[in-house]
Design a protein around this nucleic acid. Structure first.
Length: 600
RNA sequence: GGUCGCGUAGCUCAGCUGGAUAGAGCAUCUGCCUUCUAAGCAGACGGUCGAAGGUUCGAAUCCUUCCGCGAUCACCA
């Protein structure tokens, strides 16, 4: 992330160089670095130079040194208006004109904060990657929101991004649904049942599990051990047989598989659309599950892998502090790891500009990805230096883990619908939507409901687990999506009333109100926040930034009159500043996949 | 048991590469709608930053040990 520093961000550089120069002139010493922090609210100032680290080089009393440097800066540096020293902290007050000049440089910039010229190398972000035997749930929602948002953040930070998923469309799990449908389905389809395709297939996955459990119970009653019963239940054997038929390409099985998967895809498409996420390219496990075996054979010749007497192939990672890991079964078939090796290579082959992969997968697979990345590095791929496991914590319910088979999941479609309903209730209560058509209202409820949900999930550091209590529905007040959307709507209302005021330069001679200055400082932070979020793969940083910006704006809004300001220059600044804040809110929320409303 | 992650106000979370008296929201309480949208603003209350050591001028942040919670250590994915 070596985005060139725009000139308006050079304030820190100016101060940094000036402080170095001050120390050089005053003490004939070279400082390796100068440490900064934003000045705390309870002190006067904008930027604070920390004097303590200098004490290693400059002998003396920190207050004295700070004072001397402060005096020097006020005298020699245009940007610095005043200073004060508290303990070892040199607080600098920056001239208002610096902030006004900054504002004029970005005032008219479209997509301020985004890097406009993407790098030539691309990164592929994988997310979602569901199994095709059941509908998406809250866990998938976190995954989808994270993957989508990180993709958008990387783009904004100047990366070319491919969004992808690997759809787990084959294996025993889908055979279970298929078998149960054959047995109990009575020819039911999404059309005849009125059920969304993924929900219909999921229903039979549950039906399978019930039948399976019943058979186990029966077997145990007739004296079989539980362990054995779990292996020998006839319906399980049938499912396994079905998988063998699928693998041998038996027409009837493959046809049923295609039919049921197509139902699921229709359902997923709807959910993805509702959620507002998308993909550039798709991979299907049925196409990739055989990949990777040749790579293993090559690696075996190179001595990266080794073969055990039974014919299975392993890699020894004990030197790296890990274990031995199997990469090919004794019968020569691929395991999950093998597929992932093959798929990664396939992706780079398909998209030669890729120089890095991001995997959005829960933290339960931390170990798997550690091993996968290590293997790819050992195999010598250039791009293997840039692999990242976007590992996130589980979403738990008050009752504990979600289990699809036990029906203790929060269904994605239900949750989205609930959020919209809540948004509708609150909107109706507040009753500010006179003149909106029913369609516009529906659209708005969706925007707000999804805004609440997405913000609620994305504001949390990805690696932390989330406890989701469906009883206490997601908040609409305080640090929430709707609060931020509300502020955006407020700004739009002002702009409508202000009429067409153009976007000409603001006068740089005016003094700034304290709130205006704070707001400008926060606006100034946006570009570096985008970079930071990209470096850390963290939408939470964007969410927190936006919240701070909005809080600052509301405080400004409360304290100063915008349209009522008699001084035309000041009024112009305030309107322009409000407009820009609105734009930054929208840009930031776009990175989170959240829409903003003109009214609410 | 080994490895990894997490532990900050009653609850949900911030706290960047160590820096000033640890910050928000929710909840509870107090003010503010004849002025730009009160989904708001201003304020009060609330903390042994899991515990103990260590490094440092300075530790919620870095190191060690311990405690608690979770994940993972399959010829499953």
């Amino acid at each position: 992330m070596q985005a060139e520093k725009p000139r308006y961000m050079s304030l820190q550089n100016v101060i940094s160089q000036s402080v170095s120069k001050a120390v050089r002139d005053l003490y004939q010493l070279e400082l390796p670095t100068v440490e900064f922090q934003p000045t705390r609210k309870d002190f006067e100032g904008d930027i604070t130079v920390v004097v303590f680290p200098m004490l290693r080089f400059v002998k003396g009393n920190p207050v004295e040194i700070g004072t001397k440097i402060g005096e020097y800066l006020v005298e020699h540096v245009d940007e610095v208006a005043k200073f004060n020293v508290v303990k070892g902290f040199l607080n600098l007050v920056i001239e208002d004109v610096i902030y006004l000049n900054f504002f004029n440089t970005i005032r008219d910039e479209a997509d301020y904060g985004y890097v406009k010229s993407p790098t030539s190398d691309a990164v592929m972000v994988e997310y979602s990657s569901p199994n095709t035997n059941k509908p998406l749930h809250l866990g998938h929602i976190r995954n989808n929101l994270l993957g989508y948002s990180v993709s958008e953040i990387l783009k904004a930070a100047g990366k070319k991004v491919y969004k992808t998923q690997i759809i787990n469309d084959r294996g025993i799990h889908i055979c279970k649904s298929m078998l149960a449908w054959q047995k109990f389905g009575d020819g039911e389809t999404p059309e005849t049942s009125g059920l969304k395709g993924d929900h219909l297939v999921g229903k039979y996955y549950v039906a399978f599990d019930q039948a399976y459990k019943a058979q186990i119970a029966e077997l145990v009653d007739s004296g079989t051990s539980k362990e054995q019963a779990e292996k020998e239940a006839p319906i399980l054997l049938e499912a396994q047989e079905m998988l063998r038929k699928w693998e041998s390409g038996e027409v009837a099985t493959v046809t049923l598989w295609k039919t049921m998967n197509s139902w699921v895809y229709d359902g997923f498409d709807t959910t993805y659309k509702n959620l507002g996420v998308d993909f550039d390219t798709l991979y299907y496990e049925s196409d990739t599950y055989l990949l990777g075996r040749n790579v293993v054979k090559d690696g075996l010749e190179k001595g990266i892998f080794f073969k055990k007497p039974d014919g299975s192939v392993w890699i020894d990672l004990t030197e790296e502090g890990l274990d031995e890991k199997i990469v090919l079964r004794s019968d020569g078939t691929a395991v999950y790891m093998t597929q992932d090796i093959g798929t990664a290579i396939q992706r780079v082959t398909d998209h030669p500009d890729i120089n890095g992969l991001v995997y959005t997968v829960g933290n339960e697979q931390d170990y798997h990805f550690k091993v996968l990345f290590l293997i790819l590095k050992k195999l010598g791929y250039q791009w293997a230096q840039h692999l990242y496991h976007l590992s996130y914590g589980m979403v738990d319910l008050p009752s504990g883990k979600m289990k699809s088979r036990e029906g203790t999941v929060v269904d994605a479609d239900d949750l989205i619908a609930n959020m919209e309903e809540t948004a509708e209730e609150i909107s109706k209560e507040l009753g500010k939507l006179d003149g909106y058509s029913e369609t516009e209202k529906k659209q708005l409820y969706r925007t707000i409901g999804l805004g609440a949900l997405k913000y609620y999930i994305l504001k949390v550091d990805p690696k932390k687990r989330i406890l989701f209590n469906p009883e206490e529905s997601v908040d609409f007040q305080g640090n929430t999506g709707p609060f931020i959307q509300y502020t955006y709507a407020r700004i739009q209302s002002i702009l409508r009333k202000a009429g067409d005021v153009g976007s000409s330069e603001v006068a740089t001679s005016l003094g700034l109100h304290e709130k205006e200055k704070e707001l400008l400082k926060q606006v100034q932070l946006f570009p570096e926040t985008v970079q930071l979020a990209a470096e850390n793969y963290s939408p939470a940083l964007i969410a927190n930034y936006t919240y701070d910006l909005v809080k600052e704006f509301n405080s400004f809004y409360q304290q100063v009159s915008i349209l009522g300001e008699p001084n035309e220059d000041k009024k112009h600044l305030r309107v322009q500043l409000s407009r820009k804040v609105g734009e930054v809110i929208a840009s930031a929320f776009r990175l989170l996949g959240i829409h903003v409303p003109d009214r609410m």
